[in-house]
């Protein structure tokens, strides 16, 4: 029971308000308490600490892919992604323009100078929610973090 609910009940017991008014006030604060509970539930959920990025390609049994179908099982440590991304801080300033041009030629309009260490950390931690499931023709592709 929240402080607001207790106060309303106290006012009702002291006959400062009647039952209808108490009911109306309680209904007004209900959504608020509901959201409080929801936030609490979310925060109590243990945060996963992902270790590996997995890419698994398996033959689609439903499509009748035989033993000759390609099977891929790749496990990339998240720490490797983190360490690799940190290498960008070692790029000399003169090289940035060349790299940005090369990236732009590939169709990605992105300035590497905007990549900051704190952004990288956020990006890597956001990977914990990543899950891609693709089923096409003969193969099933599953990309996830564990």
């Amino acid at each position: 029971m929240t402080d607001n609910q207790r106060r309303i009940l106290e006012m009702l017991s002291e006959k400062k308000i009647n039952v209808d008014e108490a009911q109306r006030l309680l209904s007004l604060i209900e959504p608020q308490t509901g959201s409080e509970t929801r936030i609490h539930e979310d925060s109590s959920e243990p945060k996963r600490n992902p270790k590996y990025l997995r890419v698994v390609v398996q033959p689609n049994a439903e499509a009748g892919a035989g033993n000759n179908a390609e099977r891929v099982n790749v496990r990339v440590p998240i720490s490797l992604i983190r360490a690799g991304m940190r290498l960008t801080s070692l790029i000399p300033p003169q090289a940035y323009d060349h790299i940005n041009e090369a990236i732009k030629e590939k169709g990605v309009d992105f300035d590497l100078r905007n990549l900051k260490a704190e952004d990288l950390e956020e990006l890597v931690s956001a990977l914990s929610d990543l899950e891609v499931d693709v089923e096409s023709g003969r193969e099933k592709v599953h990309v996830y973090v564990e």
Binding site: R71, V72, N73, V74
Partner: peptide, 8 residues
């Protein structure tokens, strides 16, 4: 921990 396993 890096592992690449490809079979065809």
């Amino acid at each position: 921990g890096l592992k690449v396993d490809i079979k065809e």
